[in-house]
Design a binder for these strands. Structure first.
Length: 298
DNA sequence: CATGAGCGA
């Protein structure tokens, strides 16, 4: 057999080194340790054989922790003698300096998308504002497809023109009351009760009766897709002004949407603009019907 | 197509 001849070449470099050294180690002088001295300097002198089999002297000089200690503050040194607490109680002394806590800490986002009640700086096209909170609502004005592309990327944008600008400023018609002007200036901001309820029949009154539930300015939305939920409706209508309520009719038996819902606006003007702009609007591949809601039958 | 839940002293 030629196996024996192959043996050395099969050895790994680690084994090679060990074997070479082990045999002859007893020939080397013992390792010497000097210090640490007053300055914390420690010297270690040891001898080894190098690759060529020559004896070499290796001197290692280190500084002990005494000096490192000196750089720590008194307080820090003191803390090392504290008894362990918490999870660390079960640890060996000095085993670990740092413990990883397994305690769950829930972070609260004060202004999570879709939940913020204040709306600062709404300007320009409200549709352009939508979805900026991180939610995925891409609503194409040309083909009405949701979540797929923006209007500018619509594959059909050359076939059909999007109708004028989707949403414009409050109508400069007879609805230009003081309330409307105020609402237009600070869109979505707080509207004092005396200014709510909008114009029309309500303007005669001296403010809205707060004890009654505010069912004014109720807009009915029909032809909603099955999976449209209240947050979706809010997202769609919110850009037109402060929304006081959204509701999607749910079939109690099946738990599925009945395909219609209601959105209440704080001001009648905003509701009117929403109706004007969202009625006939393509949403989730369906054409929305948006109109004034009849008073609830009780 | 279609007009909302809860609501108790």
């Amino acid at each position: 057999m030629v196996m024996a001849a192959e043996q050395p070449s099969k050895m790994r470099w680690g084994e090679l080194e060990e074997d070479d050294g082990e045999d002859l180690d007893f020939l080397l002088p013992p390792k010497q340790v000097v210090g640490p001295d007053a300055n914390g300097i420690k010297k270690v002198v040891e001898y080894k054989f190098n690759e060529e089999g020559n004896k070499v002297k290796i001197t290692t000089t280190t500084r002990t922790r005494k000096l490192a200690h000196a750089r720590l503050s008194k307080r820090a040194v003191e803390r090392r003698s504290w008894p362990k607490f918490g999870d660390a109680v079960h640890e060996d002394v000095g085993a670990r300096l740092t413990m990883i806590s397994t305690e769950e800490i829930l972070l609260e986002r004060p202004r999570a998308p879709g939940t913020k009640q204040d709306e600062n700086k709404v300007s320009g096209d409200p549709l352009a504002q939508m979805g900026k909170g991180g939610a995925v609502l891409m609503l194409c004005r040309t083909c009405g497809k949701k979540g797929d592309h923006w209007t500018s990327r619509c594959p059909y944008k050359d076939l059909a023109q999007p109708s004028e600008s989707f949403i414009d400023k409050p109508l400069p018609s007879d609805t230009t009351t003081a309330a409307a002007a105020a609402a237009g200036a600070t869109k979505g901001a707080y509207v004092p009760p005396s200014m709510r309820g909008g114009g029309g029949a309500n303007s005669e009154r001296t403010g809205t009766d707060m004890r009654r539930r505010n069912d004014e300015n109720s807009v009915r939305v029909t032809n909603l897709s099955e999976d449209t939920r209240e947050p979706d409706l809010l997202e769609l209508f919110r850009p037109f002004g402060a929304v006081s309520r959204v509701y999607v009719a749910i079939d109690q038996k099946s738990g599925m949407s009945r395909g219609f819902g209601f959105v209440n606006f704080v001001t009648r003007e905003d509701a009117e603009r929403a109706i004007n702009k969202l009625n006939g609007y393509g949403y989730d591949s369906l054409i929305l019907r948006v109109e004034w809601a009849a008073p609830r039958a009780n």
